[in-house]
Design a protein around this nucleic acid. Structure first.
Ligand SMILES: [Mg+2]
Length: 653
DNA sequence: TGGGCGACGGGGCAC
DNA sequence: CGTGCCCCGTCG
């Protein structure tokens, strides 16, 4: 505990840190738990930080473990365990001030000496440091830290393993038979602790910390094995150059708060609520009774048992598991001419979705007028990011129009449009800047398949809009005559066919017959032969290796690729094709994030902050005076990834 | 008997 | 067709 150290001891400690070969660290929460105890990390507030300082051992690991320009060291009784308190009862006292200052000195040195910091859920650790020392430091100061996160390593090795826990990693890597020879120090360190002179009531705390020491030593060893595994699987570079730098980017992003227009939020919630009440009454009238409009099972009863609407309609969708007649949008659209109820339900659903998810749902995420999403780096199988509370990647784009009778009588207009994205407002003197890759997945597909027709479209400068051009070629009409609907149809056909949509699915999404859809699929395969070859080749490679690989070497194992079961096998085939394209797009967007972050950190003047990543789009908050300079930098950086990754096709932002 | 809780299914938004 | 998050209702 640094609070018990004298002046000389503090100096010694800083010297030890300078000599360290690694740090293994975790936050300690108010309830005594650490980041290693499974989940529940955000519920309890942070009490302090424990750091295991790894020192050079007399017996370094055998060379087989040190092939990454780094020597992994066996557990050693010289390893030091430090406790840094980060929470202070009152900063009025000089003593506490001094402790806080010294704690930061220790952490600052750790973060800047380029010695790896191993931390399970490193993002939460970095974010907490930024929050605790927010007044003293700039976010740019965490930029050159070297953090290793075992959870991310494990996820890269097996992205299907949804959030591996510390315990499961121990099981998998540490308690393997072959690890027995190298690691046997856990009970040793416990016994070596000479605690007999300490007062009794300290024993329990000491035991806790010794237990923690054991676990941190284990974590260090787990990271050793993971590092080896990453190297063997060719994932080490991806880990070091893309996923690790992303940790701090996400940590910094989580410390940034976005302002929300709470007054507008409240107002729209009320308007939507009134409209829902109206629709509810209309629905009860035409249905001839009350029922829960939000309940699909009750609606099913009304539509198909009471009114028997489905018998007048052939080929209605059924639900996936229970194989009941679906009440989904597609089905309700088909029923519209038979009865007034489906139309009412459709509007009710739209308004209810808007209110519950985007307005009231957003409201629950607001703290003091601001929101900040939690970003999950290991939440997808394709390498994408995910966000929650709020899911800022899923905010509706399309506005909803509400016709209102009387809200504030006569004062307001009859029709109001509600678009959730306008509820987010930038700081005064700043603007939001969005930069998105244009048709990134299609470009990647063109590159991976080397399809000449597709490549040509992207390489020719006269192609202003890819899907309009595809539509004009498709329908054999001049590009000026391509309508919005034609473009949308072309877009749907392209993405549907590429990812293996069946004729029924495509028919539903286009509102055509399955026969027409199957003809579309056929002629698409005919026109873009190399795309079809690419999908076949991808599936074949997956069958042989058991996994597929993205542009940057990200892997997705698909055991079902050789399954007997037709449904499982074909699903794996579609997942394989989708992964290569979606995963590669995720690679590129992450690379853009890392490069732009680095540029801003280096710049003494740029202050732009990343607000969100929406898969192929980066959203920033930029000082108004820097918009021109920064947007040029962003565009240049993103587009030059073509050269970085040696793509045949240009990237457009 | 009834409320709280988690798992699950259906539905719908994003890319 | 793929990848997510989140709403709601149902059920045990
Ligand atoms: Mg785009």
């Amino acid at each position: 505990d640094i609070r018990s150290l004298g002046c000389e001891e503090k100096r010694e400690l800083l010297a030890t840190i300078e000599q360290a070969v690694a740090f293994v660290t975790t936050m300690i929460f108010q309830d005594g738990s650490s980041q290693l105890s499974s989940e529940q990390v955000l519920t309890s507030s942070v009490k302090g930080v424990v750091v295991l300082v790894k020192n050079q051992t007399d017996h370094p690991c055998p060379p087989s473990y040190s092939s990454i320009d780094y020597t992994w060291n066996a557990a050693n009784e010289n390893d030091k365990l430090i406790y840094l308190k980060t929470e202070w009862s009152s900063l009025w006292e000089q003593e506490q001030q001094a402790h806080k200052k010294f704690a930061w000195q220790v952490l600052f040195q750790m973060l800047h000496c380029k010695v790896p910091i191993i931390c399970f859920n490193a993002k939460d650790f970095l974010r907490t440091l930024l929050q605790v020392y927010g007044n003293e430091i700039s976010w740019k100061q965490v930029a050159d830290s070297v953090v290793l996160d075992p959870r991310i390593a494990a996820w890269l090795i097996n992205p299907s393993d949804t959030v591996p826990s510390f315990e499961s990693l121990i099981q998998k890597y540490f308690e393997k038979p072959f690890s027995m020879g190298t690691v046997n120090t856990d009970t040793g360190t416990l016994r070596n602790a000479s605690v007999s002179t300490l007062k009794l009531f300290f024993l329990i705390y000491l035991y806790q910390y010794q237990n923690l020491r054991v676990n941190l030593e284990k974590l260090y060893n787990v990271m050793r094995y993971l590092a080896r595994d990453l190297q063997v699987q060719g994932l080490w570079k991806l880990f070091c150059t893309l996923e690790l730098p992303l940790i701090k980017i996400l940590a910094v992003m989580e410390t940034h708060k976005i302002h929300v227009n709470t007054q507008e939020l409240k107002k729209t919630s009320d308007i939507l609520g009134l409209r829902l009440k109206e629709l509810e009454q209309e629905a009860y009238q035409v249905a001839g009774g009350q029922f829960l409009l939000t309940s699909s099972s009750q609606l099913r009863e009304v539509l198909f048992e009471k009114l028997k609407l489905h018998v007048l309609c052939e080929k209605v969708h059924r639900t996936e598991i229970q194989q009941l007649v679906s009440t989904s949008e597609v089905v309700l659209n088909k029923l519209q001419d038979l009865h007034p109820l489906p139309k009412i339900i459709l509007e009710y659903r739209q308004v209810h979705k808007m209110k519950s998810t985007y307005v009231d749902g957003l409201q629950t995420c607001i703290r003091k007028g601001f929101i900040s999403s939690t970003w999950n780096q290991t939440g997808t199988v394709t390498g994408r990011l995910s966000a929650k509370q709020p899911n800022i990647q899923g905010i509706s784009k399309h506005p909803v129009r509400i016709t209102k009778k009387q809200y504030i009588k006569g004062k307001e207009a009859e029709i109001v449009t509600i678009s959730p994205r306008t509820l987010f407002v930038s700081k005064k003197g700043y603007s939001f800047l969005a930069a998105d890759f244009s048709h990134i997945e299609l470009r990647i597909l063109a590159d991976l398949s080397s399809e000449p027709e597709l490549l040509k479209l992207f390489q020719e400068p006269e192609t202003t809009d890819i899907f309009s051009t595809v539509a004009s070629q498709w329908k054999g009409i001049p590009s000026e005559e391509v309508k919005h609907a034609d473009r949308e149809q072309a877009k749907r056909i392209v993405y549907s066919v590429v990812y293996g949509a069946g004729k029924e699915r495509l028919a539903d999404s286009l509102g055509i017959t399955p026969l027409q859809a199957s003809q579309f699929i056929e002629s698409f395969m005919q026109k873009y032969k190399k795309v079809h070859e690419f999908t076949k080749k991808t599936i074949e490679q997956c069958r042989n290796k058991g996994y597929v690989v993205s542009i940057m070497g990200r892997k997705r194992p698909l055991v079902n690729i050789n399954a007997q079961d037709y449904k499982l096998r074909t699903q794996a085939e579609r997942q394989a094709v989708n992964f290569v394209v979606q995963g590669s797009a995720a690679d590129l967007c992450k690379m853009a994030m890392v490069e732009i972050f680095t540029s801003v950190v280096i710049s003494p003047t740029l202050t732009a902050r990343l607000i969100a990543q929406i898969h192929d789009e980066l959203l920033f908050e930029v000082e108004d005076s820097q918009i021109l300079e920064f947007s040029a930098l962003v565009k240049r950086t993103m587009e030059s990834l073509q050269q970085t990754t040696a793509l045949e096709v240009p990237l457009k932002v």
